[in-house]
């Protein structure tokens, strides 16, 4: 009999304080046309930031996200637009869409893993709208662009006017992501851009997302690999994983195992290190066990490929 006596309550989101949900939460809507105006608004009080809206809209409709009293649409701020390169640093404006990245020649030629991640991001309709800044701030452990951006040592640029004057700080992406859906952005800060050092021309990178379809899928796991291969060895080896930890992560011990050595000789210890570095959970998309198996099997193939470059 005891085995029947399990809890029968359906786990659902807690009811919002008013019956109106999202419809009752937004007191003010702003669509500033300058960074300065946006930062002033952020300084004034709690703000929900809207960029592409592709995550915010469904989250708010289902009650998974709540609005602050001010909804601020940042899509009309010119300072957040564009993709450009200056003295070896590539700057992606926070509002650059996945389509913008896919169509950018520099991304295509020098950031293969990022291009691949954008290519298998959701669908064309979403790629046209979803922004790189939004994907980062949403901080999903399975966020598609996070893994390649970690591989490329991306930094995020945060602007604020905490004391009335413009202040910016630059934070490594790996420090910016602090938990599922959580970042180290202060409430008065705006992510304005992502900066990525331009890798040298020999740097190769690849991205893999587990799934039976090319896109429209939330990955069970994802892997980013980057390195300067030389005669079967990897220099500057960089490994990142998605959906196997509370955030997308770099795997420094795996990288250290590989660094400068022949892939063929270090692959087993590297896989062992990777297995130690990940901490997957079981959910509706995959079990922890399967995630570990995927990381091991797929990483092996990716390392072998890079080793042959």
């Amino acid at each position: 009999m005891n085995e029947h006596l399990r809890s029968t309550a359906v786990e659902r989101e807690p009811a919002p304080p008013t019956p109106w949900g999202a419809a009752d939460e937004i007191a003010t809507y702003l669509a500033p046309r300058s960074l300065d105006a946006a930062l002033e608004a952020l300084r004034a009080g709690p703000v929900t930031i809207l960029a592409g809206g592709t995550d915010l809209m469904p989250q708010s409709k289902t009650g998974r996200a709540r609005f602050h009293p001010t909804l601020m649409n940042i899509r009309r701020i010119p300072e957040l637009q564009g993709i450009g390169e200056a003295s070896g640093m590539v700057r992606f404006g926070a509002l650059a869409t996945m389509t913008d990245l896919l169509e950018n020649a520099l991304v295509r030629s020098r950031f293969n893993a990022l291009w691949q991640a954008c290519d298998c991001f959701a669908s064309d309709q979403l790629r046209n709208v979803a922004t790189i800044g939004g994907n980062i701030c949403n901080a999903s452990p399975a966020g598609d662009t996070l893994v390649p951006l970690l591989v490329f040592d991306a930094h995020v640029v945060l602007a604020s006017k905490a004391d009335g004057t413009l202040a910016t700080r630059t934070v490594p992406l790996r420090d910016f992501l602090v938990g599922p859906g959580r970042t180290s952005r202060r409430p008065d800060e705006l992510l304005t851009a992502v900066e990525v050092p331009l890798p040298n021309e020999r740097f190769v990178s690849a991205f893999y997302k587990a799934g039976a379809r090319p896109a429209l899928d939330i990955s069970a796991i994802s892997i980013g690999v980057g390195a300067n291969p030389a005669a079967g060895a990897l220099n500057d080896a960089r490994i990142a994983f998605g959906a196997v930890a509370p955030t997308a992560i770099r795997a420094p011990r795996t990288e250290a195992t590989l660094e400068g050595r022949l892939v063929a000789e270090t692959i087993e210890p590297a896989l062992k290190a990777a297995d130690d570095e990940i901490s997957p959970i079981s959910d509706v998309r995959a079990s922890a066990w399967y995630r570990r198996e995927l990381i091991r099997n797929v990483l092996r193939g990716m390392l072998e490929n890079v080793g042959q470059c």
Binding site: M1, H4, R6, T8, A15, P16, P19, G21, A23
Partner: peptide, 18 residues
């Protein structure tokens, strides 16, 4: 939709057969 959230139901849970 809002009205639904104002309806209060008091349940006495029974063992589930799943």
């Amino acid at each position: 939709e809002a009205a639904l959230k104002l309806i209060k139901v008091d349940y006495e849970p029974l063992p589930a057969v799943v």
